[in-house]
Design a protein around this nucleic acid. Structure first.
Lengths: 134, 134
DNA sequence: CTTTCATCGGATATGACTATCCGTTGAGTC
DNA sequence: GACTCAACGGATAGTCATATCCGATGAAAG
């Protein structure tokens, strides 16, 4: 469901939220065991989206730009989802709609609803483990 | 969620179930408005999976290999999903499990459950419209 | 047997996503 | 100011899903 990039982004943001401090891109990649150079571009993208702040030079790195409770999951994974966001009908046709649903439509609508809950209601703060924070 | 190929496969099978008769690959592609040559390979794959039967030569084409009620949705879309099938954890890590779930885990598990219901419980017969059949 | 039709299936092209490499820039240390 | 560190960002390569083209094969019609 999430693209590889979106998954990396979410895990990186979670790591930063748990540590609560600035971390270098290379260190994040090592802790997550993901490609460093690839993750680098993802982190930069998150900076452009306003999710992260970056600091160059000695002692630099990335940190959350807002409080964890103000960062929705959708803001983290959204830039890496392209058009993978659930469509109206899983068959992508004009066959079914809310007024005249096919048998798959009801199932699909449930999935869409849960997905939207995940991306729009849940924040990074909700995902941080009690053992690490709060 | 479904790949493009899986969507084509499902729509083609639905079309065949509704018509109840053999149809040529080119005709199916035209009625669904999808690439004919691409769909051709999908239909062939469905034959190898035992979902469809094919007949070569004049008057040939594709038809369902079983009754619509005996064809689960998973059997149609499964061969085209690769590893897009929902994994245990949406983050793909060993961080969370049923015993120690993260906040996303519960949402993800719901989506997985509904998805499995769709692919394992629903059959082609359930999707055929009342207007066309039954 | 020749023609026609449609499945079969190899070869190839395209684009997006993923991934790697490396030079540049800016910031702090010495 | 020279050095070092780490974020920037362009260039490139591999992989996979998607898509197209076209010849080979098999079957029915004439």
């Amino acid at each position: 469901m999430f693209s590889q990039s979106a998954e990396y982004a979410l895990r990186a943001v979670l790591l930063l939220a748990e540590s609560g401090q600035r971390k270098g891109g290379r260190q994040i990649a090592e802790e997550l065991d993901v490609p460093a150079n690839y993750l680098s571009k993802i982190l930069m993208q998150l900076c452009r989206q306003g999710v992260l702040d970056s600091q160059k030079g000695w002692g630099g790195g990335f940190e959350l730009a807002k409080k964890p409770g103000e960062i929705r999951i959708g803001a983290v994974v959204g830039p890496f989802e392209g058009s993978e966001t659930p469509r109206d009908c899983i068959l992508g046709s004009d066959r079914c709609g809310d007024d005249d649903p096919c048998a798959l439509h009801s199932y699909w609508k449930q999935i869409k609803t849960i997905y939207e809950m995940m991306t729009e209601r849940i924040t990074v703060a909700d995902l941080v483990r009690p053992t690490a924070r709060r």
